[in-house]
Write a protein that binds this DNA or RNA. Sequence first.
DNA 1: CTCTTGAAGGTTTTT
DNA 2: CCTTCAAGAG
Length: 740
Amino acid sequence: MNISEGMNPRQMEAVEYTEGPLLILAGAGSGKTRVLTHRIAYLIEEKQVPPYQIMAITFTNKAAQEMRERVDRIVSFGAEQVWVSTFHSSCVRILRRYADRIGYGNNFTIYDTEDSKTLMKAIIKKLNLDTKTFKDRSLLSAISAAKNEMISPEQYRKDAGIDWKLRKIADVYDEYQEQLRSNNAMDFDDLLVNAVELFTQCPEVLESYQERLRYLMVDEYQDTNTVQFRFISLLAQKYRNLCVVGDDDQSIYKFRGANIENILSFEKIFPDAKVVKLEQNYRSTGNILSAANEVIANNKGRKEKKLWTENGDGPLVNYRQFLTGFEEAEYIAGEISKKVRTEHSRYRDFAVLYRTNAQSRLFEEKFLMANIPYKIVGGINFYARKEIKDLLSYLKVLDNAEDDLAVQRIINIPKRGIGAASIGKAQEWADFHGISFFDALLEAEMIPTMGRAASKIRSFTSLIEVMRAKAEYLSVKEILELVIEETGYVAELQAEDTEEAQARIENIDELISKIVTYQDETENPTLGGFLQDVALVSDIDSVDEDSDYVLLMTLHSAKGLEFPHVFLAGMEDGIFPSYLTITSDDPGDLEEERRLCYVGITRAMKELTMTSAKQRMIRGETQYNKTSRFVREIPRELVDMGRTFEEVKQKPQVDPQPKSGLYGAMKSLYQTNSFQPRQFKVTKADHLDYEVGDTVRHVKFGVGIVKAIVEGGKDFEVTVEFEKAGVKKMFASFAKLKKI
DNA sequence: CTCTTGAAGGTTTTT
DNA sequence: CCTTCAAGAG
């Protein structure tokens, strides 16, 4: 394949400039992923660079995977040897080999936010801190901020001076790191910090990577923080082939330590850097782009640029205001149904973006009612669910005996009669003798204060040891099944016989299938490998391009994605921009919020609709908000205001009643199926696991009895009489009915 | 030691 | 609103 095919001169310039530092300022939709993939292809095919000497850092695992696939398509061989991954995964990969050089075991555990919080609570207790003045959350964010700036506990203490509170935080920071180390665990920030630490302490390790990774590329460079920058510049130091791609207008992760200076002063740091600007947008219509340009122009201190496009103007940007969030959601659901029915759109062409995860609820409710297939990205992580964390903790304990936190989580799950008091005693013993918590448990009989809990602890430790011995010879899936078997975890849930327990069992089944997928896709699957993958997945990674559903997510999650139709919901001052940024005395906060808006607008290819509600329930209280200032920053002539709210009220476009809404949506589905020849991505099951007369459960409507099943062309139409919701007709593939 | 109950308090955004 | 935490009974 010809590498220059379909590329504009600017893009080619970036592709062909392979030696020395290069900054690509790539506006939204300017084809930066294309440039990166073609650049990799160019290096391999034209410059004869061995693929394993190329490293590309992306923002999410999904982006990494996509990039690899795209390179694979243009390059004849070797795409799989290119090192493509996120900062965090890259660091883990390096640390798995060399963590022992800096005092960790190579099988270290990765702590997620919840683990960190648990640990922090224990520390607050241990150091006897006043929980009013020292909150776990704020302590953790102080520590995280310090780590992102590569400030060690010692340095933090020095900087604290005589400030009493800061000195206390330094104590906490110190203790926190100490504990992590003795648990052989790292939190997210440690992965970066420790990789840099490794490079600094072991120059020979650094050099081996410098030699190996001679061509470096960093995507979403505007969102790198100080440690990440340090990591990448250490690697680039020797050969100086560093190519970074970013857009200062899309920097939205300041709260995570992103340092916008990294991109703004790239040319100062690398005076010989070449700069290429990509300003032609291939994604959006002219009107959408103008709206985006107008909004972002209100920010100061940005690199001057103006995106342009050869695409037509397209329709105006829509703005609709509603009385309540309820109606807003109903409108969006109705619009999507209508467009799927009347235009050649599919569900996957739509995305609903909002500022906070909490806003997803209303949409979920309405979409369920309207039978619109959807997927919510973000919110509570699958791996953060109780039942999943419990089982994973067992796996962690089997994998890393020093992970005290995991041991403490499961020691009394299921109930073994080992309570907080006994755990405290064992912990004291462990602290006193300088051994791990699990080792203290092994000596439980020797702990004088322990009493009769000792025998219970004995049976727990032997359970673990027996399982650990067996695990040597088992696959990851078999290990999990062993844990489930030995602990009776699922059996206990089955005995509960509640809807909630049933849902948990389903989650556990999903965990098992995730393990199977991991085993199938990984060359050399191990327990540790699986746990590591799990720790670093983000929700967006699981979005499947081939399936047909509407995506619901926060503006942050939407970064890097594009959709023909985008809804920006909750465009209200106080929601977006959020109340906190409006009241903040740092004007930079509002600018970051505006960049977030810019990101949102530029996700849209063909049509953009912004919506707001006059009143909205927040934490059980009704709030009255003005239209977002960001909407008002868009010139009136670019905006279609639609009918006013009152007019809409009189002549509803959407059926206001849930019942008729449901019916209408169903009808629309049916019509789409019948008159649209294009394959409507509904996978019709060849049989249903329930039949007429069976009792089934629906996520929304609850329990009911199947009254009729009609086989349609594309799907089964099922009629169910629900105990509470009455009689409903629905399509089998969307309704996801479960026989009970 | 476990379970229930009630009150209090808290909110962006994520690897 | 929804989760989390403390206190009290069994």
